[in-house]
Every structure is written in C-alpha cells, then in structure tokens.
C-alpha cells in the first residue's frame, strides 16, 4: 500500500502556507505536496504515479499563471490516470461560467470559497479523502481514525470477513 498524496496547487506563497498549516492534521497519514504552477503540479503527479503512488486529492486555486484552475481540473478528469482524484477548487474569483463548466465536465467535486476556516477545510478534505479511499483503496483500516470513521466502518462491514 502506498501513501496517498494530497496535492496543493496555489501560486501565492502566503495562501499556500495557510493551506499547508490547515492540512497539518492529515500530515501523519498522507503525503502533502505543494505546487505553484500547473506544470509543477503535472510533474508532481507524474512522479507520484511513476513511484507507484497515488494522488487522492487536489486542492486547486482558480487564478493561476497562464491557466484557470477549472481548466486544469477538467484536464485531470479527462485523463484516466488522474480521473479518480478528488478535485477541490479553493477560490474567491471563479466566475459562474467556469465553475458550472467544471462541474458539468466532472472536474469538480467541491468548491471552497476564500476566505475559508480551518474547520471548513478539515471537513471538506476529510469528506473528499473518505470518498477517495472508499472508491480506490482496498484496506480501509489505516484511515478509520483520521477520516470519516463510521462511514469507513460501514464499508468494512460490507467487505469484511473472518479469516
């Protein structure tokens, strides 16, 4: 089993630091990677997949140099290798049109408006990672304590047999 990566794509250093700080509770069980541009994020994803790892969640800003966040998320959703990744937009500036398109094209699982609270971010990350491990991971036990325990236990109950 490989450690699941949480990828943060945000070009402003201060915002990136704030997200990183709020992700701290997840740092023990997940690998957290930072990227400041789409190209950077692409290479993190490529490297992670190459090392047999998986990116479970991306937290993505909307206004990025050269590319809109929604565009990038749609791009990720169209690639079978990155489609299972849960995709969250953190932004204050995404217009309706971009957002609606991202939702319709399957590129967006959740939208966090700036400014966010630590608690809000925790809830969203927990929920999205829970969705991810339920869909993609066979052994759920390592996540009971850190993600949505009761939901994971329900799934374990369906899958679990004596040995």
């Amino acid at each position: 089993m490989s450690t699941i990566t949480i990828l943060v794509l945000e070009d402003e250093p201060e915002v990136r630091a704030a997200i990183a700080r709020d992700l701290e509770p997840f740092a023990g069980s997940f690998r957290i990677e930072m990227a400041d541009a789409a190209d950077d994020a692409r290479s993190v994803i490529a490297e992670t997949l190459e090392a047999d790892g998986e990116v479970g969640l991306i937290l993505c800003d909307h206004l990025l140099p050269g590319l809109r966040g929604t565009e990038f998320l749609i791009e990720l959703d169209h690639d079978p290798a990155t489609a299972p990744m849960r995709k969250v937009l953190i932004t204050g500036q995404a217009g309706h049109e971009d957002t609606i398109r991202a939702i319709n094209e399957g590129g967006l699982d959740h939208y966090i408006a700036k400014p966010w609270t630590a608690e809000e971010l925790h809830t969203v990350v927990r929920e999205q990672l829970t969705e991810y491990v339920l869909a993609e991971v066979e052994d759920l036990l390592p996540y009971v304590n850190i993600l949505d325990g009761p939901r994971l236990l329900e799934a374990i109950s369906e899958r679990g047999w004596d040995r």
Binding site: T3, P13, R16, A17, A20, R21, L23, E24, A27, G28, S29, R31, I32, M34
Partner: peptide, 13 residues
C-alpha cells in the same frame, strides 16, 4: 515549499 520558512510540520511518511 522553499518560500515558506515558518511553515507547519508536514512530513512525508
């Protein structure tokens, strides 16, 4: 994350 010097503890496992 080179730009953050007072960052929180993020450790890879």
């Amino acid at each position: 994350l080179p730009s953050v010097t007072t960052g929180p503890s993020i450790t890879t496992r």
